[in-house]
């Protein structure tokens, strides 16, 4: 019944949407050693599935879901982070419809859209590691947390997702209402990241 309603809405004459107001938009901070960028909105998905469904979901999503802890896979603007043995966090920065793609997979899974749940920051520059290390207790050296590594962890008093797309870039995601705290903390830490 609910599904039908959605379909009807899609076929109806579309009314102009209200504007989207992402948290902290335009609040970037740049320092000599580290730059903190509030990343633009992205499509986000929390994907849960048993091992038997991984191949089918990988085909549907167009990228191989990583199965090793702390790893990720990235393809065509779409990135899947391993978060747990049956849990992936997928984001698409190219505007792809993750929910629709998952719906193509017949294998058992749970796909929940969380595009608006999180706010993402890029912490980049040679001081990025020191900045994140102000609040994250994990070893973030390139040996322990190489390019492509991803994890759920903590940053001060907030839970975050941490992903390293490049040697000098960290992607930090947190829940929307924690974004002010995380951003303020990152700024405070970046101030000290000259060392």
């Amino acid at each position: 019944m609910a599904k039908a309603a959605v379909k009807k809405a899609a076929s109806a004459q579309a009314v102009a949407s209200v504007e989207r107001r992402p948290a902290l938009a335009g609040n970037d901070v740049s320092g000599p050693n580290v730059k903190i960028t509030v990343l633009p909105p992205a499509e986000r998905l929390s994907l849960r599935a048993p091992e038997a469904s991984v191949a089918s979901l990988s085909r549907a999503l167009g990228l191989t879901l990583p199965q090793k802890p702390k790893t990720s896979a990235s393809k065509n603007g779409r990135t899947a982070l391993w978060l747990g043995p049956d849990e992936w966090f997928i984001f698409d920065e190219a505007g792809g419809d993750l929910l629709a793609d998952c719906a193509k997979a017949k294998a058992m899974h749970s796909a929940v859209g969380v595009s608006h749940r999180n706010v993402a920051f890029a912490v980049s520059g040679p001081g990025g590691e020191a900045t994140v290390s102000a609040g994250c207790p994990q070893d973030l050296s390139l040996d322990a947390f190489p390019v492509g590594a991803s994890t759920r962890t903590v940053f001060g008093k907030s839970e975050i997702l941490l992903y390293r797309p490049a040697a000098y870039t960290f992607r930090v995601e947190c829940w929307r209402s924690f974004s002010d705290y995380v951003f303020t903390f990152l700024k405070d830490a970046a101030r000290d990241a000259a060392v």
Partner: peptide, 18 residues
């Protein structure tokens, strides 16, 4: 702060995560 080996993550992680 302890280090705890997570059998799913297959490595030691800081206690703050647990």
């Amino acid at each position: 702060m302890l280090l705890i080996h997570c059998p799913y993550c297959e490595e030691e992680r800081p206690e703050l995560e647990f």
